[in-house]
């Protein structure tokens, strides 16, 4: 494993651990309003490590909650896109011919729709539902995954080791699961790592528009939105969640690149 994977993975894991444990260790809770301590700057004296927001809530606990929610949304949404995309793409690629053409034209049609507007309409129509956010983001991302997996499957299907398996008498299911699928893992892992930051961005965007997570729950996007209103006077409310968001995005992108290099070096993928 390369150093890049270890370093990025390690820092990300550290952030997740802190985000899970931090709120438990803090004397404050995420929804405790305190009108005596509004817009406090970060301090170590009374446990407000990141200061407080305009309602006097502890920003450290809220930021950590935001990290939890943001990563959860992104990971679940990526898994949704992974499952739909891999199954759809592998079937289209392995079946080939007319089935493939039909399935991929359907994907093309979906690509042509302005998805973010649909998501916004959905959000407005069906209240703001936690579950809906996962589905909405996953539904955007599976299209790319399906295309990538389908392309890989098409080229793997023509490879000689697949022909060798067919000559041995392997059934289509055996060819697909024992020979094609294991050779897809590399590509899929890399691509999932790269879709997570995309999902984080979409979630942040929705939250920033006020369409994401409901108060008093929060996400990094919502925190940034709240921080923008207090940009003058209490800049920590913007800077802290924005820095966290940017760091997490960068780490996922670096991790994805490092993973891609690692799988490329092995040659097989």
């Amino acid at each position: 494993m390369s150093r890049g994977i270890k370093v990025c993975g390690g820092i990300l894991l550290g952030i997740v651990v802190v985000a899970l444990l931090g709120p438990m260790l803090s004397p404050h809770s995420y929804d405790q309003v305190n009108f005596d301590a509004q817009l406090m700057a970060p301090t170590t004296s009374d446990g407000h490590l990141f200061g407080t927001d305009d309602l006097g809530r502890d920003l450290f606990v809220r930021s950590m909650l935001g990290v939890q929610v943001t990563i959860l949304v992104a990971v679940v949404a990526s898994i949704v896109s992974l499952v739909i995309g891999v199954v759809y793409g592998a079937i289209a690629g392995y079946a080939g011919g007319r089935v493939d053409a039909l399935m991929m034209r359907f994907v093309d049609t979906l690509y042509a729709l302005p998805f973010i507007f649909f998501v916004i309409l959905l959000m407005v129509a069906f209240e703001r539902n936690f579950l809906l956010i996962f589905v909405a983001i996953g539904a955007i991302n599976w299209l790319d995954m399906a295309r990538i997996v389908r392309g890989q499957t098409l080229s793997l299907r023509e490879r000689e080791f697949v022909e060798a398996a067919r000559l041995m008498g392997a059934s289509p299911a055996r060819v697909l699961f024992r020979h094609i699928a294991p050779n897809l893992v590399g590509v899929v892992v890399v691509y999932v790592t790269l879709t997570i930051p995309q999902a984080i961005l979409v979630e942040s965007f929705l939250s920033f528009l006020g369409l994401g997570i409901q108060e008093p729950q929060t996400s990094l996007g919502s925190l940034v939105y709240a921080g923008v209103a207090q940009m003058e006077g209490a800049s920590h409310m913007l800077l802290i969640p924005a820095t966290l968001l940017a760091t997490i995005l960068l780490l996922f992108n670096f991790l994805g690149d490092a993973l891609r290099d690692a799988f490329d070096a092995r040659g097989g993928v």
Partner: peptide, 27 residues
């Protein structure tokens, strides 16, 4: 090939020019 029964398939086997490419890289 896909219409040939398994027993018939086993009777005719192929050795490829590029041996490495004919072996699944993950196995």
């Amino acid at each position: 090939l896909d219409d040939r029964p398994r027993g018939q398939r086993a009777a005719l086997q192929l050795v490829f020019q590029d041996a490495a490419a004919s072996l699944n890289p993950q196995m």
